[in-house]
């Protein structure tokens, strides 16, 4: 075979590939499902075969190489077969993937439209209160169907003492609690109330009274922000340090987790300012809380 016929052969293959490309682009234009399937994917397989055979000379390569490549492709098929029943299907034996169902019914197509905030559950019938948005460290809260926010419960299992330490819990934040005034200034655009809902309310309670669901199981009890004595006993710097470096840093329970890696200083200041609004004794403003800790 002379040099020219070699290159002419390759150019011929290339021409076929281009034709196939054109068909695979035009085919789906007609919008028939099976036509799209055949033209787009069928032709893709043919093109891949042509490139592998003529360009990569797989046909004259030793058989062992073909077997290696076929094995890796078969393994991917095996992975697909083992995983699809759980990921592709949205329901199965005794389980429903509410998140996927919810995402299918309220899809996000355009950059503008967001999940309908605060919408009720998917049809799985949770009677729970507003569902939590995923926290992503505060900030953008996509609506999320996942499970149920634990509404402040009448029976907070109060008598269930147990000698557990206090735990801080970043539960997914509910929608913004109406009552709390948005705190201005400290960190522009940062919603301290939402941060409190997502990160603090599980232990400190949505009313800041220290008996959130997880708080109930803790000993010592989480801090109660509605109790004026709490604010007299310490200044904002100590509260800031407790939030930033965790309870152990200020001699309190190590179960109060350090939030320094999730919220920056300005955001923590905004949270501290927000906590003051729980104080029932006429809201000792941040300035007045200058007593020694």
């Amino acid at each position: 075979m002379s040099a020219e016929s070699h290159s002419r052969h390759y150019i011929k293959i290339w021409a076929i590939l281009v034709v196939l490309l054109v068909i695979s682009v035009i085919g789906p234009m007609f919008g028939h499902k099976w036509l799209t399937l055949i033209t787009a994917f069928g032709i893709a397989c043919v093109k891949a075969y042509l490139v592998a055979k003529h360009f990569m000379h797989l046909d004259i390569e030793k058989a062992m190489i073909r077997w290696v490549l076929i094995t890796s492709v078969v393994l991917m098929g095996l992975f697909y077969a083992g995983t699809a029943p759980d990921v592709m299907e949205h329901t199965g034996l005794h389980w429903t993937n509410d998140a996927a169902i919810y995402a299918s019914e309220n899809p996000v197509h355009e950059p503008g439209d967001h999940h309908a905030a605060g919408a009720g559950e998917g049809e799985a019938g949770h009677a729970a209160g507003e569902h939590g948005g995923d926290a992503h460290g505060g900030g953008d809260a996509h609506g999320a169907p996942a499970g149920a926010e634990v509404a402040s419960t009448a029976e907070a299992g109060s008598e269930q003492g147990g000698e557990t330490e206090e735990a801080a819990a970043p539960a997914p934040d509910g929608e913004v609690a109406e009552a709390a005034p948005a705190t201005a200034g400290a960190a522009p655009g940062f919603d301290a109330a939402a941060a409190f809902q997502s990160s603090c309310s599980t232990c400190h309670g949505e009313a800041g009274d220290g008996n959130g669901p997880v708080g109930a199981a803790l000993n010592p009890k989480p801090a109660n922000f509605t109790d004026p004595a709490f604010w007299e006993a310490r200044d904002d710097a100590m509260v800031h340090k407790a939030i930033k470096e965790g309870g152990a840093a200020v001699g309190k329970s190590p179960m109060m987790a350090p939030w320094g890696s999730t919220y920056d200083d300005a955001q923590i200041d905004a949270i501290v300012a927000y906590l003051h609004h729980f104080n029932t004794a006429g809201g000792a403003t941040t300035e007045a809380a200058g007593e020694t800790p």
């Binding site: 890796s72 492709v73 393994l75 992975f79 995983t83 592709m88 899809p107």
Partner: peptide, 15 residues
């Protein structure tokens, strides 16, 4: 294969 497999699963699950 792993990446496209995951994509195809999601794609078939979310028409």
């Amino acid at each position: 294969g792993g990446l496209l497999g995951s994509y195809i699963m999601h794609r078939l699950g979310h028409p």
